[in-house]
Amino acid sequence: MLLIPCPFCGEREESEFHQGGEAHIERPKNPDKLSDAEWADYLFLRDNKKGLYLERWVHRHGCRRWFNVARDTATNEIKTVYKMGAKPPRGLTKGRAK
């Protein structure tokens, strides 16, 4: 069970939350112009990284707000959380293999 620091409510147990997959995947701005390959990229292809991973969570049984989490998928260590729309904190992704 992870302890997740919700940016709005503080630390709560994982069972109050729901993970929403990889963060920073933007919905295409002009969907009618997209090729099949671009759709596949947006919908299905994922980094699925071992190591630092940026993901979205929602505090489903709490404040019901979405936010981003930077977690190491090899250790489950949560590095930081930050709000939707914000860029990942600088320095976090530096020097990491993709």
Binding site: M1, L2, E13, S15, F17, Q19, G21, Y53, A74, N76
Partner: peptide
């Protein structure tokens, strides 16, 4: 588990 990961153990809940 409820979230992606590579920690070969899983959550107790």
């Amino acid at each position: 588990d409820g979230c992606h990961g590579y920690t070969q153990r899983g959550s107790l809940h």
